[in-house]
Design a protein around this nucleic acid. Structure first.
Lengths: 144, 144
DNA sequence: CGAACTGTAATCGCTTCGGTTACGAAATAA
DNA sequence: TTATTTCGTAACCGAAGCGATTACAGTTCG
């Protein structure tokens, strides 16, 4: 597991909010569907809120709800909301600068890694939250 | 850092081997350029050997060398030689099967994650080891 | 006010990562 | 044959990240 589970959980959460945007969902409700604890949900929600994807309200009857229409949320935004670091690691220690290879390989790696990461991100950008909900609930209606 | 540094190190190693394929390179030589320890190099070499990208020989004058021409090695092969797991993690615990969302979201996620991972892999497949060497050593010849 | 929420900090056990030591096997040199 | 060099692999260590859990202050509603 290279990319942690927060991304998958975030999509799960947003799909739940999209499925019924009439009343806010508590972190307890969501944790019940994800099968984890409410604090983990609220931590992920923090990133989603900073990114402007959800809002939430404390107090009785409070909870989280989508801040935008699901057609206007794509998976790349969700990804960036919960994953900050760049995908590929370079060397943990700086390579030998007296070696012609060691002193020049890192910029070259940055180039190919950046290109590959862009390809991944573009793929994620092609799917919206609305499409996810549609896929999930059309599966739900089918007989197993 | 999501994808560990082994991938970057593997490319570094292979570039070193490509730069001079006349005599085998010891894990000590390579560790000196990467700036790490020889055991770590040999561990990575194990994956590259299993994938048929390098061969190695023990004993005096031994070491590692490319098993194929650098034009016939692309970065996707290197990636798969050193990274086994799939890129995106799903839920750590199975989601609630009594929730219509929880019981259907994982296959949907598999779909979009697989598509994104394929886009990344295709991008990696477009670059060969020969191109990496060319980029590194054309940089090395330029004045800083 | 009291109950039901959120937001966040602190801590814990587990796993992975990379560094290190150790040692047996293979190949060459003398 | 013996000594030396090198690989291959296992074992262990410390550091870091992940997700679970407890705790608690702040906010909102009835």
């Amino acid at each position: 597991m290279a990319v942690n589970s927060r991304f998958a959980i975030a999509i799960h959460i947003l799909t739940m909010l999209d499925a019924d945007n009439q009343s806010p969902k508590t972190s307890d409700d969501l944790a019940g569907s994800v099968n984890t604890n409410p604090v983990f949900i609220r931590r992920i929600m923090g990133g989603l809120r900073k990114a402007g994807l959800v809002d939430s309200q404390p107090g009785v009857g409070g909870g989280a709800y989508l801040a935008r229409s699901p057609e206007q949320i794509n998976l790349l935004e969700v990804y960036k909301a919960v994953e900050e670091e760049q995908l590929f690691s370079l060397h943990t220690h700086q390579p030998n600068q007296y070696c012609p290879c060691g002193s020049n390989i890192q910029p070259v790696l940055q180039g190919v890694f950046g290109k590959a990461e862009s390809a991944l991100e573009q793929s994620l950008a092609e799917t919206t939250l609305a499409q996810i909900k549609q896929a999930v609930f059309s599966r739900a209606k089918q007989p197993k």
